[in-house]
Design a protein around this nucleic acid. Structure first.
Lengths: 146, 146
DNA sequence: AGTTGACATGGAGTTCACTTCAGGTCGCAG
DNA sequence: CTGCGACCTGAAGTGAACTCCATGTCAACT
């Protein structure tokens, strides 16, 4: 649900943006953003303004974009934390690469499996169409939207 | 994890098979099978032998195969229950078809989204390979501290 | 000055899909 | 007959990832 292409961090003011704006932009919910920070998923504790409120920079935004990409490909919070920890330490590029590559491997496998299952699903659907279709000869655009 | 092609229900004896065997065959765990039954995911309460133990028929096996296909494409237990309920009632073929088709729709979208994210992941990996690769010419034996 | 709305914190609560547990029943090998 | 292992039930527990709540602080309007 929710396509997260992160509209290219359109102009984050130098003062940064508030958590509400980031929530709206990422679709993440302010609670979730705070939760992610608590869980050590951010590169560093988000800087605060005078009143103690978080101010996200465009760098934060693109990091979050990366998190979303990882999450939506099924990476666990624990693994994202690992990656964040590595990214906080210098000279860990190789390790990060290992994490990303093994994640990629899992994603590809998952993708393949889902596609196989989709075929099975299609077969089942065809069977139903066969059984029911004779009267259903109208719907077929692939859009079962309302 | 776990490819579930259900080795074509190879010869289920007329007496049916025990829950342990089904577990081994489906990779599902006896507890999960009982849980699914409790949740109303089976077509009917699995018949029991004299001692009250479940005996799965080959029909049960293939139904379970269907459940696995649905589950692995991300269908919730609640939706699988809905489908089971419909399948228990006669003349609901059209409704079942609707459920399956809208599920298919979601699967296809999810698939597309994951593929987009995979590309982003690949881009990120390439960047890391670029940054790290030049030195990656040999197997990194020791720990790269600092 | 007062009200409003966004944001803060620590902690509790929720949802989902299982998984484990405690205690009991059978069928069969020895 | 005695174990042993497989199975049974109802209920409680688990882990992941949020999500909500009570209470409190500020900044900015009107």
């Amino acid at each position: 649900m929710s396509a997260i292409s992160l509209p290219l961090v359109s102009e984050v003011p130098d003062s940064g943006m508030g958590i509400g704006d980031v929530a709206r932009l990422t679709g993440l919910g302010a609670d979730t953003l705070r939760y992610y920070e608590r869980e050590g998923l951010m590169l560093d504790s988000t800087p605060r303004d005078g009143a103690g409120r978080r101010r996200y920079s465009s760098a934060d935004l693109s990091w979050i974009g990366g998190l979303l990409m990882l999450r939506d490909t099924g990476m666990s919070v624990a693994d994202m934390r690992t990656l964040a920890e590595l990214s906080r330490a210098e000279g860990t590029e190789r390790e990060r690469l290992v994490v990303l590559e093994s994640h990629r491997q899992r994603v590809v496998e998952e993708l393949a499996r889902t596609m196989r299952h989709l075929e099975a699903l299609d077969t089942k659907i065809s069977a139903y169409r066969e059984a029911v279709g004779p009267a259903t000869r109208e719907v077929d655009s692939g859009r079962t939207e309302r």
